[in-house]
Amino acid sequence: MDTEALRSFVRAAELGRLHHAADELGVTQQAVSKRIAALERELEVRLFTRTARGVELTPDGRALLPHARSIVAGVDRAVAAVGPGSRALRIDVLGLRSAQAVVLHEYWRSHPAIKLDVVTLRVDDPRVAVAAVAAGDVDASFRTVTDPGALPPDVQMIHAFCNPLELVVGPGHPLAAAQSLTPRQLRKHRIWVPGIAPGSEWAEFYDQLATDFDLRIDAAGPHFGDEVLLETLADSSDVATLVGARDRYVFPAQYDLRRIPLVNPTLAYPLSLVLPRTNPHPGLRGIIAHFGSLPRLPETVWLPSWASPSPTH
């Protein structure tokens, strides 16, 4: 059944004149007449009788009216539910402890009225996340395709912000007492980063980082989760790991773990946001503007070759 025919029927019944219904619906009176006539043929009943003052409902028309109103209202609610300005903004992050989730939480705390749905797609290949954006499964994704030319034409990628790295060590590690460290000071120390998935953006990041600074970055062994990683660091005198300064970790007090900034240069992980090229969710505007308010990076920064030329935050 044609819902626009039902809509024309409802407005004509409520207003009593076909031309008033046509004006309100933005169509011609002839279009309204044709819609109602088609509806009458489909139902095999007369819905209106014509009078000198316009149209009046027949008994069948009066019986149909409340049901037609319900159908039209339901269609309107369905359209509103999926409209970008009405439904929750759905954004993919790598994890709920990640810097992306932290930044989104900061924004939501200052804009609590925004309807926000933070999800984790749990995929390592950024192309899968890009496909989810293109398909409308999510409105945006914090992923980086290191070759922007590989993006589909209906998707764009913008620089979001950078996440400076810190070294995390236990109290028995030889670097534990440092207030800050340079990348050169990390040479020959084992940096364990489990869970580096081949083909992921972070695999390429760590490959370049290890090559440029002659670092010993080890991804050996299965990743049993952050809790196991932190426990290993607390008990070790030779294992360290890298985390983002904006990543949220809660260390058990008895572990006495140390987060040590890396400087001269600051090592920074650039984060990008993938979103539709046309008609992005309107809620993204405020979040993208929020990126510009984040603290600026130091002047001396190392970024991988595929990062934006001069990201400032």
Rank of each mutant, 00 (worst) to 15 (best):
P148L: 09
I91T: 02
V239P: 10
W306D: 08
Q156Y: 15
H20K: 01
L262W: 01
S180I: 01
R109E: 12
D218C: 09
L257H: 00
A268K: 07
A73M: 03
A78H: 05
R87M: 05
H105I: 02
G95A: 14
E201K: 13
A78R: 10
T266L: 04
R7W: 00
A37T: 11
R187N: 06
G283Q: 02
L116S: 04
E4S: 07
E56P: 01
H223S: 04
Q208I: 06
Q156S: 15
P59T: 04
L181F: 02
I287T: 02
R216W: 03
T232P: 12
L39D: 10
Q179W: 15
F224Q: 04
P112E: 13
V79A: 04
S8W: 00
P261Y: 06
R53I: 02
A220V: 12
D218Q: 06
L6T: 03
Q185V: 03
S8K: 03
W202Q: 15
V79F: 04
A219D: 15
Q254W: 13
A73Y: 05
V119Q: 06
E106D: 09
F224C: 06
E56V: 02
P112S: 10
L262M: 08
L233H: 12
G26P: 01
A307E: 07
E106F: 13
N163I: 09
I158Y: 04
A22I: 05
A37V: 07
S70P: 04
P295C: 08
E204R: 08
A63E: 08
Q254D: 11
L18P: 03
V243G: 07
R17Y: 01
T120A: 13
Q29N: 07
L175T: 13
D207T: 12
V228M: 07
A80V: 02
L297I: 14
R90S: 14
A101K: 11
M1Y: 14
V32P: 02
G136E: 14
V10L: 00
R143M: 09
V263D: 04
F161L: 10
V103D: 10
A132T: 11
D137A: 15
V103H: 13
N264W: 03
S33K: 09
P261L: 01
L116M: 05
P194W: 01
A203R: 00
V138H: 05
